[in-house]
Amino acid sequence: MTELVLQNVSLRFGGLIALDDISFTVSPGSLHALIGPNGAGKSSCFNVISGLYRPTAGTVRLGVQDLLRLAPHRVARLGIGRAFQNTALSPHSTVLDNVLLGRHALTRGGFLAGGLRLTSRQERLHAARAREICDFLGIGASVDRPLGALPYGVAKLADIARALATEPSLLLLDEPAAGLNTDETAELAAMIGQIRTDLDIAVLLVEHDMELVMGIADQVTVLDFGRVIADGTPADVQTDPDVVKAYLGVTT
């Protein structure tokens, strides 16, 4: 993978400044965390990377590719997989069907090809890969169940499975631990570590759970009010006075 570089990115909604001159780099194969209090601009940052928001200024590059010139579906095809904050899956479809959506860019065929059963071999091959990914994440037993009938923790993993199904080199995870209990969070942390090491995928993680972040991240970027206030290893960031101030509200 090539590195993801955000350079002087600003995002304005009318008078509201969501991102103010943000710069950071996600290195290949690293586990990079993006943290900050509520409203710091973490999700906005994700939406800029995946092309859903267009920044007012700045550049976003993946290697030499300028992401800002691409439509969102093209960004996905470059190898950036994304899991959503509250999962964005189809509740009536099965887990497998949801995960297979991640194979969209890797497959071909429209209405007639599907209707005439010309794609059945392709469907079988990709379904097998989707099952493999679900097995890897430990939700292999639920693949054929409708998503709406499953516990939230499984749905979260299905969302990650779908992002992995795009065969990304960079995985964006938006608050994967939100709504999970302590045990589930610990399992998830182990899982994210595994994704990075076993699959050799760089992970950019937005998270509130400090314990999770500090335990597994290589690099941490801290946002507050749309600005980068710290960028470094977890140890560096934890002792940074600006970070302590932003989180605990300590003055002087």
């Binding site: 995946s50 996905a76 959503f84 189809s90 479809s93 069907d97 959506l101 969209h104 497959t107 065929g109």
Partner: peptide
């Protein structure tokens, strides 16, 4: 494939785009 794309567009356009 096309059916999954239709349902994805129905359920969440942003997520559909993020999946390509």
């Amino acid at each position: 494939r096309i059916g999954r794309a239709w349902r994805a567009v129905r359920d969440n356009e942003a997520a559909a785009a993020a999946m390509g």
